[in-house]
Design a protein around this nucleic acid. Sequence first.
DNA 1: ATTATTCTTGAGCGATCGCTCAAAAAAGAC
DNA 2: GTCTTTTTTGAGCGATCGCTCAAGAATAAT
Lengths: 234, 234
Amino acid sequence: MTEAATPDSAPTADPPADPAADPAAGRAADPAPRPRPHPRRGRPPAFDRDEALGAAIRLFWERGYEATSVTDLTTAMGIRPGSLYAAFGDKRTLFEEVVRRYGHSPVGAFVGIALAEETGARAAFARILREAAVIYPDPSHPAGCLVISAATNVTPQDAGVQALLRDLRNRNRQVFEDRLLAARQDGELPPGADPKALAGYLATVIQGMSQQARDGATPEELTRVAELALRAWP
Amino acid sequence: MTEAATPDSAPTADPPADPAADPAAGRAADPAPRPRPHPRRGRPPAFDRDEALGAAIRLFWERGYEATSVTDLTTAMGIRPGSLYAAFGDKRTLFEEVVRRYGHSPVGAFVGIALAEETGARAAFARILREAAVIYPDPSHPAGCLVISAATNVTPQDAGVQALLRDLRNRNRQVFEDRLLAARQDGELPPGADPKALAGYLATVIQGMSQQARDGATPEELTRVAELALRAWP
DNA sequence: ATTATTCTTGAGCGATCGCTCAAAAAAGAC
DNA sequence: GTCTTTTTTGAGCGATCGCTCAAGAATAAT
């Protein structure tokens, strides 16, 4: 779903893959289009780059990668194709930036934040499930998680986009497992607990909740799902 | 995922929507293209309709509705566009027939079969989760459930296809709820149990398992997920 | 003013999309 | 054989796909 706050990985889905994941880093970006302070040459851009990127996020989030055309994007962003390609590169590169920024947004970061702020593993995952139940169906943005649902149906030529999100999801599951392994070593989980299986179970529930939210489930319904899911905790 | 055997609905995903859902019915099909016994006129078809439909199922199952082009279909089916349109109508109609037949296939029907064969609700859902853990990642067919994942990313013009599968999923969730409500009335579930919440939870886990299977989870991993999920049973 | 630099604009590229159709081919009916 | 019916075939329709590019417009530097 989201992105991790402190380390740079989130559970089940998010964009901590690259540097620039945490804002604390000192070395200023050289890959990212750095926002120069004042001195600009030439004609100034006629659109707000962040606003345009936000419009792209919403579109990709709602429809997915291939179902969103460049015409859809330029219309929603209020710019012409030339401006889009000059500012963001091609469609694939724009999508990668969308995924990266989604991971830094509240919806894309809540998992990592919970893992960073909660000391207990049980408290962290309980918070994650309960927050997902409210965040995923929130009508202020498209339902569910972009990392989970934006590249499910793709042609072979866009298999790379599918792999990008799949790797993010699997990396997040690994973050779950690492956290649960540490919890078992700390004695929070019983010695017989299976961190790998529990991580898979939690990732399964979260991904299922994203799907349910997209199918119209309400925060109340998903909250009851979250409470039921937590009963399986060892 | 699948289709229901006895009534005509399955949990979380399947095609029991139309008549022809259960094989027990006596009235022979009038909407379905009936296979006439012997006497045929004109040039005989040069391809096996069932085999061609099977190829279409695999393609839609693997890539989804929009990511599968008519050219992909005709290539895999070994026929030319004209034959496809003559035999199956347009792409949308072909997809509807694919969904219908998927629901009658083993992978698309195991949920309904378990619900029909198991007398106890707990036994039925335990069997469903355990079978899903083995069936979803089975390499003899595309991973996961077609009804869950074949129409996630669609353009607005194909919203109808998305709605078709969403309705199927939600109808299956309702079948779960009905079954659990009956179980509570029979005393199998405690009076305090919440059939609606439990149905949502089970649908969530199943849909999550389909996604996990698509992301590469093994039968062993998914079986452990299923066992963990069953610990939440009231 | 003139020049240099950056961005916007609108036309349009080749490729693919779902789909159609006249003509040819293969069967039974006569 | 000839006629009728059904299917196959291959060309190709209009629309959309992601993307490019020369020309013009708007700014800072000189």
